[in-house]
Computed example of a mutant assay.
Amino acid sequence: MDNILRNFVKAANQGDFSLDLTLNVNGALVTGTTVSAKKYMQSLSRTFENGNEISQELSEKLSRASEVNYAHEEISYIHLEEAQVYNGDSKPTPSEGSFYWRGKLDEVDGFFLGKIDAN
């Protein structure tokens, strides 16, 4: 795993640090802005909070997971917001809107600073 990329993720998990990145993952390009694991978990929690009983239970579990101090955890995942995935064609997925993306750091083949602009 790339120590530079690991340090970017560590900085995101420790505080209010974000960075536009594009990752090469198994031939696809994943582009977005780094966010902390805490922010990622909070976003997922909000997604489920207004659903049925099972959804609300998931929301509570994810909310508790967001309280973990990820700054001191082993770094295994990278989290991006406003993510888009390019897989061999000119249109990203999703082509409209934005979403959070989570990927294994040890699956990243390479990266560059900056995001791909779909426009």
Rank of each mutant, 00 (worst) to 15 (best):
N7C: 02
M41P: 06
Y86M: 06
T31F: 09
K115W: 01
Y70M: 02
F111T: 07
E96P: 01
N52V: 06
Y86N: 04
A11K: 13
M1L: 03
A65L: 15
E57K: 09
Q42D: 02
P94L: 00
R46F: 11
G88W: 11
F111V: 07
V85K: 04
F17M: 01
G32H: 06
Q42Y: 04
A12E: 05
N52G: 15
Y40V: 03
N3I: 09
T34W: 08
I75R: 00
I75W: 04
G110A: 13
L21R: 06
I78C: 08
K39D: 12
D106N: 14
S95M: 14
I78T: 09
A71N: 05
H72V: 11
R102S: 14
S66R: 04
G32C: 03
E107L: 10
R6L: 15
K115N: 07
E96Y: 12
S18Q: 13
G51H: 13
S63A: 11
M1R: 03
E53G: 04
G88L: 10
S76H: 06
S63K: 09
N50K: 14
L62E: 00
K61F: 14
A28W: 05
A28L: 07
E49F: 13
S95F: 15
A37T: 11
G27M: 06
N26G: 04
S90V: 13
S45C: 12
N26D: 09
G15H: 10
T22A: 07
V68F: 05
D106Q: 06
S95W: 10
L21W: 04
D117S: 07
D109L: 03
A118K: 14
N3E: 10
S66C: 07
F99A: 14
I54K: 03
E73D: 05
V68Y: 01
I4L: 02
L58R: 10
V25R: 00
N50F: 11
N69L: 13
S66A: 13
L19W: 01
K104D: 10
S36N: 11
Y70N: 01
K104Q: 12
T31Q: 11
P94H: 00
S90R: 12
L113V: 11
D20N: 10
V85G: 00
N119G: 15
L29Y: 14
Y40D: 07
N119R: 15
Q42R: 08
G97M: 08
S66L: 04
Y100Q: 06
S66W: 10
G27H: 04
F17S: 00
F48K: 11
N119H: 14
N13C: 08
A11Q: 11
A37N: 01
K91V: 10
S55P: 03
K38Q: 09
G51C: 10
E67P: 03
L21N: 02
F112E: 15
E82I: 04
N24W: 05
G103M: 11
T93L: 14
A12Q: 04
V68Q: 03
L62A: 00
V30N: 03
